[in-house]
Design a protein around this nucleic acid. Structure first.
Lengths: 119, 119
DNA sequence: CAGGATCCAAAAAGATACTG
DNA sequence: CAGTATCTTTTTGGATCCTG
């Protein structure tokens, strides 16, 4: 298996418009219910939230705990294995922080990371 | 600016179907011409290659050197600033490697990182 | 050779309505 | 409450043809 493949694996797991937000919430707040995540991420739809949570769950990064009661209650949390992502997330965050500064130095305030995408 | 935003910045730069391959090629081989990149990444179209190269260039990760001659010659290379990505790329690669092993432990050989996407 | 431009297909995301 | 299901829109990527 190529290096490339491995590299891309990391991207696959972290990519998805909402995964970073979800992970950040769970890392910050520990256990959260579905509705709490919705409140914390107002713009996400239920469909997207569910979908991204399932993918993270498949990858053993988050745990889904279902309380069999009415009304239903489902709690999400980072798995022990998922905690191993911390250094990587931290590294990405650090690089991102530095890079925003770098971009502003290059192009000034008015430019965002997305500037080029619009052409 | 939120932590989230910074985190996502890193993703934005690295994401795109072909960016990992392109970066890997350039990190591995140093300077490469457009046509060499094409040969090294047979499945990529010119359009995609150009597009992704421009994005990486905008982010000051790669340098584009144009030789004003006929036929044209354009060489791409990692900028000094771009070299700073090395630890992050390495971290992503390492985590990806470990994660592939983890997935196989969980689900066996037949499952890929993408398994869940098909539903 | 290194692309730009245009059109088209596929994938991802969003809106909305419904359910145990 | 915590989802599904379905449909529509947006975003990406690919195919093809053209050019200095």
């Amino acid at each position: 298996m190529s290096t490339l493949c491995k590299f891309e694996t990391a991207l696959e797991i972290l990519v998805g418009k909402w995964k970073p937000v979800i992970l950040l919430q769970l890392f910050a707040n520990g256990t959260m219910r579905f509705s709490e995540l919705q409140k914390a991420i107002p713009d996400i739809t239920k469909k997207m939230l569910t979908q991204q949570l399932r993918e993270l769950q498949y990858h053993d990064i988050i745990h889904r705990e279902v309380y069999n009661q009415i009304p239903p209650k489902v709690e999400y949390s980072i798995t022990e294995y998922g905690q191993q992502l911390t250094p990587l997330l931290q590294a990405m965050n650090d690089w991102g922080t530095a890079h925003i500064a770098h971009l502003q130095e290059l192009y000034g305030e008015e430019h965002s990371a997305r500037s080029l995408k619009r052409n």
